[in-house]
Computed example of a mutant assay.
Amino acid sequence: MDLLLRVAPQVRLSSSASGLRASLDAGPAAYVGVRADVPSTGEHVSLTQLEQRVRAAHAAEDVVALGAAEETLGSLHLDNHPLRRRPEPPDSGPLPTQERTALQRKAFRAALPQVSLFKWADRTRARAAAETEARSFAQALDVANAVVKQHRVVAVEDQWLELSEHDPATVIAELDAHFAAAECGCTCVDAGWDDETSRGYVTVVGRYPGLDIVGERGPGVSSSGRRMLRRRTRSERNALYLSGLASFALATVRRAISVAVAADDVHVIVVRPTAEGDGLEPIYVGSLSREAVTLRPSLADPVPLLLGSAVCQMQFEGSTHDLVALDPDPHVTEVVRACAEAMADEQLDTLLREPGD
């Protein structure tokens, strides 16, 4: 199957502390938000935090912490990502009684002129006028409150309609906001409809750590049953790295289809830092359908799915199956170039923010 990597003209790649981001040059100026995030019962850990935990555990030779971090890296795809649902309209009821009373009291005091307590007739007329002003103020507040809430209802309904109909600008904005909140190292660079298949698609770029995320030593047990760090073979490191990559790719697709409710296919490009650390290289380009992801057993090994969904055959070298960069492809190369430039821009921004420069 051929994969057409479309990067929409209105999308611009940038970078932030949490990873790559895609922004829109045109489209809706602001989004009210139709996200209905379900609180997680466990601790949310970003990919960057996991990477830091692995390195810290290696430095401290903490077997327990290393085992927990590596286990999490290999089970990212098991996280729950509830499907986005039509949002409930915000409450359009009147102002709370306590708040309404406080506002009326302020309006009353502001409308009541400074009249001597001994001028009873003037005081009575002033009080009547102040009460009238306070009632008018409260009625105006009610009208304004109703108009604002009705506007919010319409805005939320319109955005949900655009998301459910797979409007590209809305889908890209919603997905990228979700990725940024999750700090998962991903960004959405395109969305639309495939003319030949009439299926909705999104294109996502994910940044995964290099092979050094899997240390040369890992959790093990000594002959006496004591936990210890034992040396890994190159093949073991490569197998663990591939397993983590597959979990990351599947988790990315599951995140995408939970937000882009009308997307049938998710095209994924995974890049990683080069060995020299001065750029990015593509290691996986694939396409996964909603059916393939939702109908598979949740505890099934994600590696066969990763290998089977690759539209550009993944490259392995040597007897230890070292994962290397994909062969150059003009579409993929363009995306990677844009990502590398975004990363370079972030480094430049960091230098410019340093004091004294």
Rank of each mutant, 00 (worst) to 15 (best):
E70C: 14
G67I: 09
G74Y: 02
V64W: 04
A65H: 05
A69D: 07
P28Y: 02
V54E: 03
L76Y: 01
A60P: 15
A59P: 13
E43M: 09
L50E: 01
P39H: 05
R84W: 09
V32R: 13
A29C: 05
D25T: 10
A56K: 15
A36K: 11
R86C: 04
A29S: 12
Y31A: 12
R86T: 05
E88Y: 10
P90M: 09
H81D: 12
E51H: 09
V45Y: 01
A29W: 09
G27E: 01
E88F: 07
S46G: 07
A65L: 15
E43K: 00
L24G: 02
P87Y: 12
V38M: 05
E51P: 11
D25G: 06
A56R: 15
P87E: 04
R85V: 15
N80M: 09
S75V: 04
A30I: 14
T48C: 14
L83R: 05
T41C: 08
L83N: 07
D62R: 12
E43L: 15
L47D: 00
P28D: 07
L73C: 12
V54Y: 03
A30F: 15
D37R: 06
D25M: 11
L66D: 01
A65P: 03
E43P: 00
E88M: 14
P90C: 03
N80T: 07
A26K: 00
E51N: 08
V64Y: 12
H58N: 10
T48G: 09
E51Y: 06
A57E: 03
H58E: 14
R86V: 11
S75C: 06
L47T: 08
G67N: 06
L24A: 04
L47C: 09
R53A: 11
H44P: 04
D79W: 00
V34I: 13
N80S: 13
G67K: 06
V32W: 12
A60Y: 02
